[in-house]
Design a protein around this nucleic acid. Structure first.
Lengths: 212, 212
DNA sequence: GATCCACTAGAACGATCACTCTAGTAGAAC
DNA sequence: GTTCTACTAGAGTGATCGTTCTAGTGGATC
């Protein structure tokens, strides 16, 4: 793999542009954020913006989403690695997200989720960028659940649901200005992870048992 | 006069404005939708828009969110009422959402969730409007889970997680242009509902048991 | 049949949008 | 010290934003 995915040097101005875009996306979303705002927040004049990103706003947003998606992936893997069990990793992830949300006065939500909902039916290049990021997260979570003994199919379903629950928890918590829904989701989701891992370890029960 | 909540008569033009706004919100979100678009889609000139909604775009969006929030609440309660069990209601709800999403070419997602993520940190009146809608859904789901024998606290946690998982499922499905994540979330969430209800019916296990 | 009011109709307003353009600067290469 | 390139700088472009404005229309009321 190259040093950076599209092969760009890490010029400081370029980095500032992406950082500022990432923060503006969290607060205002795609349509609520303007190029002028990026210029002001990054202290980069218009000329620099279009020097580094000749394809304009969409190109900046696309790369911002990709880079912050990679950061979240690393964060997930770090938490997974340092947690004593998969179930503990789930708890740590939800609680960590809740703490971050509170510390930022309910601003620091995931920009990828916001953009995905906002532009998925009008801007296909950006839609597929969000899809790729989500897929990378689901892959990582699938691997984690599979390590705990879950069959591949169950692990993948659980991983997709994990991301969905986390993103939906961000949404409810932001709307409520209260991180409780996110913590609640962590409690409930840890429970299902406990149950599914325990079930997978008692093969007599089969893959998808129902109530007797 | 107070037949509808804020006390407005159901003038046909007014209805068309709200319907058009609801649809535009799904596709483009709050900032991606313009007053001119509402005017065109509802065949109502600017004069009519500001005659019925003197407070402008935000007032239109607020009422559109409230009315579609009420429609979803009724839909939820209808599905809950006609499903043979709470767990079946969950399955029906996720599968119904997935079918609707596919039938609409991945456009018909929940507008409340999109607006919540988009404006929650910049527009407090609209933020609290989305919060009220989410709360009404969580109340209804809490009642459903409580009816199945869950303690109030568990029912409320589960209800909040249900809404979070559903909204997050919409997001993943839309980004992927594939309803699989939504159906996966339905399978997983039905599983946790089965487990929690079964656990609640065997009081020897206590309220929040962990793995032995 | 004059008056009135709810509603229709869309042009016009200043602000802001994404983007383009010209001009200038700093430092490396020779 | 000239030349070249990478980057900075921000005014200017036409389009579109949310909103306001004036002008009209049709039907009920007196």
């Amino acid at each position: 793999m190259e040093s950076t995915p599209p092969g760009h040097a890490a010029h400081p101005t370029r980095e500032r542009i992406l950082t500022a875009t990432n923060e503006l996306l969290r607060r205002h979303g795609y349509n609520g954020m303007s190029i002028k705002q990026i210029s002001a927040a990054s202290s980069a004049p218009m000329g620099s913006l279009y020097h580094f990103f000749p394809d304009g706003k969409d190109a900046i947003v696309r790369e911002s989403l990709e880079s912050s998606g990679a950061v979240y992936l690393q964060l997930f893997q770090a938490i997974a690695a340092e947690s004593p069990s998969t179930a503990d990793a789930i708890t740590n992830f939800f609680d960590g997200a809740a703490a971050l949300l509170e510390a930022s006065d309910f601003i620091e939500i995931c920009p990828i989720g916001s953009v995905a909902r906002e532009i998925a039916s009008t801007n296909d290049p950006l839609r597929s960028a969000t899809h790729r990021v989500f897929t990378s997260w689901i892959e990582a979570a699938t691997a984690m659940f599979a390590t705990s003994g879950l069959p591949e199919i169950d692990a993948r379903q659980l991983a997709a649901t994990f991301i969905a629950t986390l993103e939906g928890g961000f949404m409810l918590a932001r709307a409520a200005r209260d991180a409780t829904p996110l913590r609640d989701a962590g409690v409930v989701f840890r429970r299902i992870v406990d149950v599914m891992i325990a079930t997978a370890r008692t093969p007599s029960k089969g893959v998808t048992p129902r109530m007797p």
